[in-house]
């Protein structure tokens, strides 16, 4: 393996002491996600949907996770008269995080794609050491991460996306229980 031209070794990371705020990121708006998930669609029509208690029970049984809201946010994607699928925007709340995501579902109940809209951490990132708090008091702690970009890059132990994966299963159950018959 060649050792030439390795900027990585030259680019010794500059250690800067910063205290990250609880991690939060906004990736996409609902509208952007709609077009990203079903790009052929010309129109996305909001579908008012109220789940009955029986449907909510059924969704829980099918997916293994509880459906918290009786009124999921659903859009029908169309191109002319053709129905291309559904967009459902949902939230999952974990022990440490609050995630909004959009899922595209085909008319026959397949996942077309998943986009994370926003990620909020409810804990973590706090400066727990009082000496640190004093050091950074009065400063905007988010600033170091806003250099040229909006999203903080974090390297650390891997975060699990299990909640979202389970959420997508639940949205497929919503589709099967209600939308699959709604055309």
């Amino acid at each position: 393996m060649s050792h030439r031209n390795w900027p990585v070794l030259a680019a010794l990371p500059v250690l800067a002491v910063v205290a990250a705020p609880a991690w939060a990121a906004d990736y996409m708006t609902v509208e952007q996600a709609q077009h990203a998930l079903i790009p052929q669609a010309q129109a996305f029509t909001a579908i008012p949907l109220t789940l009955t208690p029986a449907q909510m029970t059924r969704i829980r049984q099918m997916s293994g996770t509880p459906q918290r809201t009786a009124q999921p946010k659903v859009w029908r994607a169309q191109r002319g008269a053709a129905m291309l699928g559904w967009i459902i925007v949902d939230e999952v709340i974990g022990k440490h995080e609050f995630i909004t995501y959009a899922t595209g579902i085909s008319p026959d109940g397949h996942v077309l794609g998943v986009e994370i809209l926003s990620y909020r951490e409810s804990k973590g990132g706090q400066v727990r050491d009082p000496r640190w708090r004093d050091k950074f008091r009065g400063k905007t702690l988010a600033d170091p991460f806003r250099l040229n970009q909006d999203i903080p890059n974090i390297s650390g132990a891997t975060l699990s996306s299990r909640n979202v994966t389970d959420g997508v299963k639940r949205l497929l159950a919503i589709h099967a229980v209600t939308l699959a018959h709604a055309g």
Partner: peptide, 24 residues
């Protein structure tokens, strides 16, 4: 700019990454 999240979930350090990979 890349923040390094410590084992206790707190990010205390930021590094500048340029043409390199960082894994924690």
């Amino acid at each position: 700019p890349v923040a390094l999240r410590d084992a206790d979930d707190v990010a205390r350090i930021s590094v500048a990454a340029r043409n390199c990979a960082i894994a924690s």
